[in-house]
Write a protein that binds this DNA or RNA. Structure first.
Length: 498
DNA sequence: TTAACGAGCA
């Protein structure tokens, strides 16, 4: 498949404004955005050559890991960069870069590549940590192979990572977060609890697992077991159950539990308040949510950005986006810095109310704040992320503004903030069927090709839909091409070995 | 190492 065929092209060869001399060696240090852009426009053959042409001093561990982060949604290119760095500048690879590469490989189910990366990092004197193994375990669970995750846990000490309580809790958490709480309880907790001396955190994780599948009764049972065993519940334990009630739609039970927590002084904190503001609000009890929010100042618990976000979301969903904007302005006046979630909530609220132009203004201020802000202390600050782009694209598509959606997509595809993910492609491909135009179906086909090239696995449904569309509009040749890609794609090796 | 704000599916 020639990329030049693609209507939805990879980024134009625009130089990043911060990057004056990225294609030849010079005295300007290489920045992550420039290296990412360079890698995306190069091939497996040229990437190592380009890397060799630059002085070794350019390749710091942070350049390597930041660039891999930017290439997160292009698994092919990020793995190519990783392999090329191994060959040309191995000292630039830190634990962080290995973890990123392992995550990307595992996400596309290349588990044998994961094993070799772990062996390679050890041979380079970088020991895989629990973080490394939690990535692998999580990917196995998400790939529908939870028993493999358990196996990784039983083997990991052979790869230099201690099997301890911390690791035990991490495995429990990985399973519970993927809603495999029964497996976590029966196959891990019961089997290993004594050996690793399960603690309060272990029980909290299980209680949370039950709450995630909306079985608060089971979480309360865990609470009883803790009390029986003399393990004192923490504020996290109570907050988990509190959230569980609201998540399960048991609003009044949640409210009673909150009152009881206050009465018995069991660690009511900022998390409990945020949970209640959000829980009451999304259940439509906006007045009560607002009252709880106002109560915080009186009891001396100041709201955090997350609390403001909860209130803003509630107002957008159940009240008016106008009031949400007032709260947003108020939080800024008080000196809070909105994060990417705050902006995404407002942008979604505005789009939902049909104000897409105003939503775009907030998008622009996010980008502006990113330029003004050099500190970036918590990593991503308020830069637009994949959710920001996806929600804008989704609303543009829903409103029939396909061109606007495509222009946001192209901007995203420049890769200054993030690259399109599976959701982005799914949203756009679906929207290509609304106008019933032959040219739209070609775009859908090209998007499908591009997503496969970047390591995403479209559902069979997407393949069939695009194929049918192309055949019906007389694009037999392109349909054949996609069919060939699909047959190759479905035979990708699915090795599960570690 | 666990808990709050985001996060969809044929």
């Amino acid at each position: 498949m020639k990329r030049s065929n693609l209507l939805v092209r990879s980024p134009p060869p625009s130089r990043h404004p911060n990057c004056r001399r990225y294609s030849s060696s010079g005295d300007t240090p290489l920045r992550p955005k420039c290296l990412a852009s360079l890698v995306r426009r190069s091939t497996a053959e040229t990437i190592p050559k380009i890397l060799r042409s630059r002085p070794a001093t350019d390749f710091t561990p942070s350049l390597a890991s930041e660039t891999l982060k930017l290439l997160w949604n292009d698994s092919q290119k990020s793995l190519l960069l990783f392999e090329s760095l191994v060959a040309t500048h191995p000292t630039s690879l830190s634990l962080a870069s290995f973890n990123l590469a392992i995550d990307v490989a595992a996400r596309s189910r290349q588990f044998s590549a994961v094993t070799s990366m772990i062996c390679r990092m050890r041979s380079m004197g970088i020991n895989p940590t629990l973080r490394t193994f939690s990535i692998v375990m999580e990917r196995y669970v998400l790939a529908g192979k939870p028993e493999r995750a358990i196996k990784v846990f039983t083997f990991m000490h052979e790869y230099g990572c201690p099997q301890d309580l911390h690791a035990f809790n991490t495995l429990l958490d990985v399973l519970c977060k993927a809603k495999r709480v029964e497996m976590a309880w029966d196959r891990v907790f019961k089997v290993f609890a004594r050996r690793f001396a399960a603690d309060r955190v272990s029980y909290n994780i299980i209680a949370n697992g039950w709450c995630l599948v909306k079985r608060v009764g089971k979480a309360l049972e865990i609470l009883k077991v803790m009390l029986r065993k003399g393990i004192e519940p923490s504020s996290s334990t109570y907050n988990v159950v509190l959230k569980g009630f609201f998540r399960a739609g048991q609003v009044e039970e949640g409210w009673k539990f909150f009152l009881e927590m206050k009465k018995r002084k069991c660690g009511v904190d900022i998390v409990s308040y945020t949970t209640v503001v959000h829980g009451l609000g999304v259940a439509g009890e906006v007045g009560r949510a607002q009252k709880v929010f106002d109560e915080m100042a009186k009891v001396g618990i100041l709201p955090s950005v997350a609390t403001y976000n909860a209130l803003i979301q509630v107002l957008c969903k159940k009240d008016s986006v106008k009031n949400a904007i007032s709260v947003f302005n108020e939080m800024r006046r008080k000196g809070y810095t909105p994060n990417v979630t705050t902006y995404n909530l407002l942008i979604r609220g505005l789009c939902h109310a049909g104000h897409r132009d105003r939503a775009m203004e907030y998008m622009e201020s996010m980008k502006k704040e990113d330029c003004d802000d050099n500190t970036q202390d918590d990593g991503d600050g308020s830069r637009p992320n994949v959710q920001t782009y996806n929600l804008l694209i989704r609303y543009f598509c829903d409103a029939g503004e396909i061109e606007r959606a495509m222009s946001s997509f192209e901007e995203m595809n420049r890769g200054d903030y993030c690259l399109p993910n599976l959701d982005t492609y799914n949203i756009l491909i679906s929207s290509m069927f609304v106008r019933k135009r032959s040219e739209d179906l070609i775009v859908a086909g090209k998007l499908l090709v591009e997503m496969v090239e970047r390591g995403f696995r479209p559902r069979r449904f997407a393949f069939n839909r695009v194929l049918n569309g192309l055949l019906l509009t007389g694009n037999q040749g392109f349909a054949q091409e996609i069919l060939r890609m699909q047959s190759k794609f479905s035979h990708l090796p699915r090795q599960f070995k570690l």
